[in-house]
Design a protein around this nucleic acid. Structure first.
Length: 255
DNA sequence: ATGGTAGACGATCTA
């Protein structure tokens, strides 16, 4: 089973790229972030016609997450159960194809120590508490998405210029490490420990052609998933298309 | 230190 995650930066603007990419790479499950649309205006037909079922947790203009799957989607959760009052659509979870999968869009945080940064850390605490709960179910669990955090300097093209900046601060990295300490594994790092698997390149200053990127999109797997891991990758060529998302799709193959 | 670009939306806000 191939599970992919992709921050599309507007699902309506990216529809052509999405359809071409699904035809080419045939993921079984897709975790979308930043769909930037309410469920009422979500382009269901275009994606269903590619053979997918869909569940959507939408929001106007900002955020929004969704899951597409070739298998039926059951036991759906919209929003983190431990943050029921969060008005931002950043988490959706479902059971599909014998796995529990979640699509997460962690807040960017803007700058270290501002109000949005503290919201980011609070969100990560709520996410961690919920992911700890998921481990008690003893199921294969995959939580993939845009975490907006580099794990360490291996994920950064120029660690010196990013030192203690947003996406790279010690506080954010500690929050990400807490998820790993629960028992989840960073599947791309597990599969290719030496690889610089950047997943995001800024739209500005020719970042992609210069390969000035960061790895901030991650797929975390519970122990049951780690045992079945076959291969992983980043579809970098999707970032090179005309009018691309600033993120490339990331995927794992699990037995 | 600033600004560079993109998307939603219709003036800025978010990233």
């Amino acid at each position: 089973m191939k599970i992919a995650t992709w921050n599309v930066n507007s699902i309506r603007t990216r529809l052509e790229h999405i359809c071409a990419w699904t035809k080419e790479t045939q993921p079984d499950v897709i975790l979308f972030q930043e769909i930037k649309v309410t469920e009422a205006f979500f382009p269901f037909e275009d994606i269903e016609s590619q053979g997918y079922n869909l569940v959507v947790f939408g929001q106007k203009s900002y955020n929004g997450v969704a899951i597409a799957s070739k298998f039926p989607l059951e036991d759906i959760t919209r929003g983190l159960p431990l943050c029921p009052d969060d008005p931002q659509a950043r988490y959706i979870e479902a059971v599909t194809g014998g796995m529990r999968v979640a699509s997460v869009y962690v807040p960017n945080g803007q700058t270290v120590d501002c109000e949005k940064f503290h919201y980011k850390l609070t969100f990560m605490e709520g996410l961690g508490a919920h992911m700890a709960h998921l481990l008690t179910k003893d199921e294969p669990v995959v939580v993939g998405g845009d975490y907006n955090i580099t794990r360490d300097d291996q994920d950064v093209y120029d660690p010196e210029s990013w030192k203690e900046k947003i996406l790279c601060s010690s506080q954010e990295r500690t929050a990400l490490r807490k998820l790993l300490h629960l028992g989840y594994v960073d599947l791309l790092r597990q599969d290719s420990p030496e690889e610089k698997n950047y997943t995001w390149w800024d739209y500005r200053q020719d970042s992609f052609t210069q390969n000035r990127g960061l790895r901030i999109d991650h797929i975390l797997g519970s122990p049951q998933v780690i045992d079945r891991l076959q291969s992983t990758g980043v579809d970098r060529h999707i970032r090179a298309l005309d009018r691309p998302s600033d993120h490339a799709p990331v995927w794992v193959n699990v037995k």
